[in-house]
Design a protein around this nucleic acid. Structure first.
Lengths: 230, 230
DNA sequence: ATTGCTCATTAACAATTTATTAATATTAGA
DNA sequence: TCTAATATTAATAAATTGTTAATGAGCAAT
């Protein structure tokens, strides 16, 4: 587990509320970032990769629900916690109906004590799971660290682009198993997007270029697999 | 146990239903694939090798029962779970009567909560068995590994082309059983494609060349079978 | 705004492997 | 023995993957 401070992004158009929440969260030891609307939230979130996002439902430009939906569609936010702020308790059901993948709802007006205990609870739960999830793969002379997004070969650091990394991680997560292009696409590209057939090849090419030619094997007519040769 | 996401193939001609089910399964953490009729289902299933297939009973082109029957006849789907969707509860008995090897039935209209608990239950059961049921065939001095697409003879690795491998896997999945050319064609070639009679012979030839002459026996006038001679 | 990066994707084509056919030889079995 | 059914081989077709270079988006620094 990383011993970094956990990061929280607070999103609300009312500066007072942002400040109130941010103040309390900082006191609790979190690293706090802020945004004042949904659009900004997405931008900031991409950069800082927060562990949790607190979203006001009603905001100008882009509301919290839309922002949530957008981020949920991005693979990097798959496991990011998202919590809504709602002005009236009746809105709970409304939001729930949208089914955008919210993890909790917090009612306004904000009660700092209650807010903190909810947030703490969510992030503690998360932290516990974190340890169980295998984030590091050691295989052959490679160490693949999902948390740091880094690969080491004999201790030497290799920097991979995101797609290259995910490709390697996928293949290496079950060495020897052949992954068809279709399965690779589903896993790394996340529905809807359609890419040319050659796209995977090119990423494989670059991956091989960086980590060496003897880790990824082609099984013609079937797909690719992780296999150490020589 | 593999730490891969479990794969589910959802097959229904009604896009709404597919989407509803897919959405819920994805939220639950499954990798979801879709198809809109039985024919497509078979094609996709061959490529992605899902852990579970949810089949609507009534569909155009090829209905769920027929698709199930076809896949059940293929050795690679021997341990794949198949679940039917039925519009009316009375249909249960009907399907059961077909005896195609269904593992469960789910009634429409779909209730997401109920659906998920059923699916989870089936796959949890499966996950426990997973460790025991390797996707490997050990026969005579051969090890046929479908996941790695490799064959070992006395530990020595043999690389086969796709068609050769599938041919061997098919025959070896039931040693002694004679497979007619017709059956072989249905299993290994996509429907629609038509090939000359000699095509199979040539593949058999190459297969024998690679693994040795004493595994595949010809039954003149009928077909081929896996049989160790000498 | 401009420039210079990296990354993801695509297109075009090369290289390679695999699949199929056609032609001919061989064989098992009535 | 005779013949239909397979074997075998080599040539050709088809399919798949490899490779390179170009494009454009996004981002950060100037």
């Amino acid at each position: 587990m990383s011993n970094q401070k956990q990061k929280i992004l607070v999103v609300d158009d009312e500066a007072d509320i942002v400040e109130l929440i941010a103040y309390n969260l900082k006191r609790e030891g979190y690293q706090v970032y802020t945004a004042s609307n949904g659009q900004e939230a997405v931008t900031v979130a991409k950069k800082v990769m927060p562990d949790l996002i607190i979203l006001d439902v009603m905001m100008p430009k882009m509301d919290g629900i839309e922002a949530c939906r957008i981020m949920r569609a991005m693979p990097e936010f798959k496991s990011t916690f998202m919590v809504f702020l709602t002005a009236r308790s009746e809105e709970y059901s409304e939001i729930a109906g949208f089914n955008v993948g919210a993890d909790d709802y917090i009612a306004k007006p904000i009660k700092p004590r209650a807010l903190l205990s909810r947030i703490n609870a969510i992030l503690r739960r998360n932290a516990q799971q974190e340890d169980q999830v295998e984030n590091k793969l050691e295989i052959a002379d490679l160490v693949i660290d999902r948390e740091a997004f880094l690969v080491f070969r004999n201790g030497e650091k290799i920097v991979l682009a995101k797609k290259e990394f995910e490709l390697l991680f996928l293949l290496a997560s079950k060495p020897g198993k052949v992954y068809t292009r279709e399965v690779i696409l589903k896993n790394i590209w996340e529905d809807s997007v359609v890419v040319t057939n050659r796209t995977i090849d090119v990423h494989i090419r670059k991956l091989r270029e960086k980590i060496g030619e003897n880790y990824v094997a082609t099984v013609k007519g079937v797909g690719y697999k992780f296999e150490v040769t020589e």
